[in-house]
Design a protein around this nucleic acid. Structure first.
Lengths: 333, 333
DNA sequence: CCGCGCTTTGCTACCGGTTGCAAAGCAATG
DNA sequence: CATTGCTTTGCAACCGGTAGCAAAGCGCGG
């Protein structure tokens, strides 16, 4: 239990017969130090189990190599691959991710303030639902850490967003669905503010209103939870006579699409795609499984994360960008 | 772009006409400070947007309120609710989680050393596959942060583990399956070392060998990936004549069970549970959906995390414990 | 008005590194 | 042998807080 206190640079210096500044230099790539004394220091450091205290280092260098990742949507299984890719990319740059759970006890603003106190180098909002935080952001201290938005478009000026191109992707989806002969489309949306920020809904409805001339019914799930999706479709099907129903349902993401498929099949006995075709968005692994076999638009996750990290490392200009993904046609349409 | 440098305690002190130590006290609950000067300080602090620098604080207090969470298994969707519950519980204690991705580029040992350099207060291994790290752990510096294991049993002395009671849970499952009339069971396992550490396999096979007297075939998936599960079942079904096949497959967790259901149904046209019953373990949300309708044993996630946090906050003795969960019987058995 | 005890405040020292400059070491040059 | 220029090392100061102690402030009884 009596933890031997960690060795410090001064301890190593004493053992190696140099000053503590020389020890620091031995651990600083490219520092001015004689090869023989670097070796001597590293040798003693290894013997004592010394590794620089990153906290102390950060205090002077003003950079922690920590990035806060804000997630408000743990019900969406697509968040897992996003976290996987993000953490791996950060770790490849010697950085680490602080995962922050946004929920009713801890809102975006508190999270940003908290992350700021921890001196993180950046804050990444991963497809989170901002609500009217945009306004509140102006109340943040001017010296907050830089914010980035991943996997949704930024509705807030000066906050760069890296996302999948809604215009290009929805065009591909629309073209596919049109070619398949669908003519009575519906759209299932998630959180209201996010639906706006994503732009998927607007590109979808714009196309179909122009092509088919009919309004596109919106099935509002309100969140990216497959249970909410089930409820939204349930309500729609109960209220709509079979003859008036949509023939294809475009879902804002795969989590919604999966919930919709479940309900269509198991509660209403509808065949997918014969009675109701369903398409999703994200390219979630689960959607590919034979049970769902979901047509989806795969987001270019690796590329998006790489672009984001280039920005926050200052290797490229920080600005909002849209990247193209890939339409994956499966049996559900 | 010219970031105004953050206000420090000294700045606030100057503005409030007190010393910087008084500023510190205003932000320290229970410190000895006059009410009027606390208010004065807080007021000036708000005006300047001052919030204490937690990095600097940690340097002297020796506690960062950061906990590293090691995850090596992002293909298992159950990790998402685990992360959700963990982060929320940590945040309720004013702590934050550093999420570390263990993969071929970054092993357990590097992760622990890295976390140590960041001075985390503890490291939590979330159901990770240790391999022979146990041996290597002895090469760690003696002053490493305390390690805890969540959702698997610890095979390493002195490292406390909080897990779901394998003996109790498997007894409940065995009793259920026996009562349903199944007599030819099989077991699907994940990573070899984890299967041992979890103890689910041993409790399962012990029961059936005693009851039915027959050996229990093991379908080794090798990892907790639904694709690996699909492959393991595929191989088994191809190699085993229908008459000799198992009638129930117990899977080490839900991710495997889902892969098995997919393959049984869609590749071999087997009805679940009539032709082959399937059960899982974890209580993953997805398994509950009508598509899978999986019988599973729900781990008491909230309680496990609460117990773990009590330990790492020193509110309870740090030792390995097993908690009981709940058998959830659904249509797959 | 003095002295006592309690509250409140200020101060020195320190946490474990890094920065930037000055001094020392050293070899080559004139 | 003194000078020059480059490399290497040591040092004072600092990053932004906190711990622990000593001094100051204050209310009150005598």
């Amino acid at each position: 239990m009596s933890k031997p206190s960690r060795a410090t640079a001064a301890d190593v210096a004493l053992a190696a017969g140099v000053s503590k500044w020389t020890v620091t230099r031995a651990f600083t790539p490219g520092a001015s130090i004689a090869e023989h004394s670097r070796e001597r220091v590293l040798q003693e450091a290894a013997k004592l189990g010394y590794r620089p205290n990153l906290l102390a280092r950060s205090l002077t260098t003003k950079t922690t190599n920590l990035v806060a990742i804000l997630v408000d949507d743990f019900a969406n299984s697509y968040k897992l691959p996003v976290l996987e890719v993000l953490t791996q990319a950060l770790q490849a740059e010697q950085m680490a991710a602080v995962l922050i759970n946004i929920n009713q006890h801890f809102d975006h603003l508190s999270a940003i303030l908290d992350a700021d106190q921890r001196q993180v180098d950046a804050v990444i909002l991963v497809g989170t639902d901002f609500k009217d935080e945009a306004l509140k952001l102006s109340t943040l201290p001017a010296s907050r850490p830089p914010l980035y938005v991943l996997a949704r478009e930024s509705t807030i000026a000066h906050i760069p967003a890296v996302s999948c191109d809604a215009s290009v992707s929805m065009a591909a989806i629309n073209q596919h669905l049109w070619a398949q002969g669908y003519r009575r489309p519906g759209f299932m949306s998630g959180p209201r503010s996010l639906s706006t920020a994503l732009g998927r809904k607007s590109h979808f409805t714009a196309f179909w209103q122009q092509q088919a001339g009919t309004p596109v019914p919106e099935l509002a799930a309100g969140s990216y939870d497959h249970r909410a999706a089930a409820q939204a479709l349930r309500t729609y099907l109960q209220q709509t006579p079979a003859a008036e129903r949509i023939d294809v349902l475009m879902c804002e993401n795969d989590a919604l699409a999966i919930g919709a498929i479940e309900t269509a099949r198991h509660e209403f006995g509808l065949r997918v795609p014969q009675d109701l075709a369903i398409a999703g968005y994200d390219g979630d692994e689960l959607a590919a499984s034979p049970s769902f076999n979901l047509t989806s638009y795969r987001q270019p996750l690796q590329e998006m994360v790489a672009a984001l990290i280039d920005m926050l490392k200052g290797r490229s200009e920080a600005r909002s960008i849209n990247l193209p993904g890939e339409l994956i046609i499966r049996g559900s349409t």
